[in-house]
Simulated assay, not measured.
Amino acid sequence: MKIAVDAMGGDFAPHAIVEGALLVSPELPEQVTVVLVGDQAAIQEVLGDRPLPGNIEIVHTSEVILMGEHPTKALAQKPNSSISVGFRLLKEQAIDVFCSAGNTGAMHVGALFSVKSVEGIMRPAIVGFAPQVSGQFAVLLDIGANADCKPEMLDQFGEIGSIYAKYTLGIPNPRVALINIGEEEQKGSLVVQAAYQLMKVNKKYNFVGNLEGKDFFTDKTDVIVCDGFTGNVILKMAESVYEILKSRGVNDEFLSHMNYEAIGGSPILGLNGNVMIAHGISSPLAIKNMILLAKRQVESEVYLKIKQALS
């Protein structure tokens, strides 16, 4: 298995990326290799006198897509960027998964142009993870790829989210809930009400109804479905709660699960391959945990399971 990571992506690249790879290296099985895609000299500078572990490789690239660049233009104008080369390797199946804390738009566009969407997927969705009071995590989608969603898209998010939770998180019959302003099926916007009607008759997953904000962390579901606008607001609010309480000296196990570093990465579901994005401010610990999550995703063959379900 080869897990490729964009060494030049993120606010603290390449330092955080290289250090994260070194951090995870001793924990990886013999058959797993981390491939750092980026400028070899910059990577070597971070390494200093430390030897490169045998399970880490470098693929040299000479260009970088910066955070503020236009995704489509940057991919076209910088074919030797770490993101462009990473997707080329993924398309050629030279790697099993491509991860980056860099330009999210470029990662999304690059994925759609290289490995493309699974046939039948309306829109790929970005997955987040919502900590639960039990210590487990619920899958949350979408968290930003699709600000506006049709009812049919929310229904499909329920299906692919359920497949992800089953095969990657090992939950036998994941419960799927729809974010809403009340538990009753007639509550909410017209889009959410229509989505509810589709989801309650869909036999491909275990729909348990609406989920109110007050129950977001209370183990009432395993998969939480919403549009990307709502999901992104919820995720960033949770991150801010963690930062505020941490700054006030609050120490709690549940609170620590709100830290973005706890999971490290967010898969993009609905693609013909494994793609994962990370927070732009990712630390070495976040990169380490993203690589471990990427390993689980490759092992689960979840994108193939989604492909089979929609064929």
Rank of each mutant, 00 (worst) to 15 (best):
E299H: 02
G38Q: 07
F229T: 12
R50V: 07
D222W: 06
G170R: 01
V97P: 04
M290S: 08
I287D: 00
V275N: 07
K295N: 13
L190T: 11
Q197R: 15
M153H: 09
F217C: 11
F87C: 14
M122W: 00
L66M: 14
V59E: 08
G110P: 13
D96R: 12
V233Y: 03
G280I: 07
G110Q: 12
V176A: 03
L154G: 06
Y205H: 07
Q193F: 01
M276L: 15
M258Y: 03
G182P: 06
L304G: 06
M67E: 15
A278R: 01
A286K: 03
P14M: 06
V115M: 00
V115N: 02
K200L: 03
K214V: 13
A41Y: 08
K187N: 06
V85M: 12
A76P: 05
P131Y: 04
E92T: 12
C149R: 02
T61L: 02
G213K: 09
V18H: 03
R50E: 13
V115C: 02
I181P: 00
V24S: 04
E185F: 02
P29C: 14
V250Q: 06
P172R: 05
Y167H: 13
I65A: 10
H70V: 15
V208D: 05
E69M: 11
A101K: 08
G128I: 05
V32I: 13
G120V: 04
E152L: 09
D39F: 01
D252F: 02
A106W: 07
E27W: 07
G135Q: 13
I287V: 15
M8K: 13
E183S: 08
L140F: 11
M8L: 10
S84L: 14
A94C: 11
K166R: 09
H70F: 09
M276N: 08
N80V: 08
V24G: 02
Q193A: 14
P174T: 08
E253W: 00
F207Q: 11
Y164H: 10
Q136P: 06
L255E: 02
E253R: 05
V46M: 08
R123K: 12
G161Q: 07
K204Q: 14
D155E: 13
Q186T: 13
A106P: 10
Q186N: 10
M67R: 12
N259T: 01
Y260Q: 07
I160G: 03
M153S: 03
D215W: 08
A111L: 13
M67K: 13
G249M: 06
I171C: 03
V192I: 13
L90H: 13
I234H: 00
I306R: 03
P124I: 04
N103M: 15
V109S: 11
E63A: 03
P131N: 09
R296K: 15
S100K: 09
P71F: 09
K91I: 04
G161R: 05
D6E: 09
L90V: 15
E253L: 00
E159A: 11
R175K: 12
K203R: 15
P284Y: 04
A74H: 11
E45Y: 06
Q156C: 05
S117V: 00
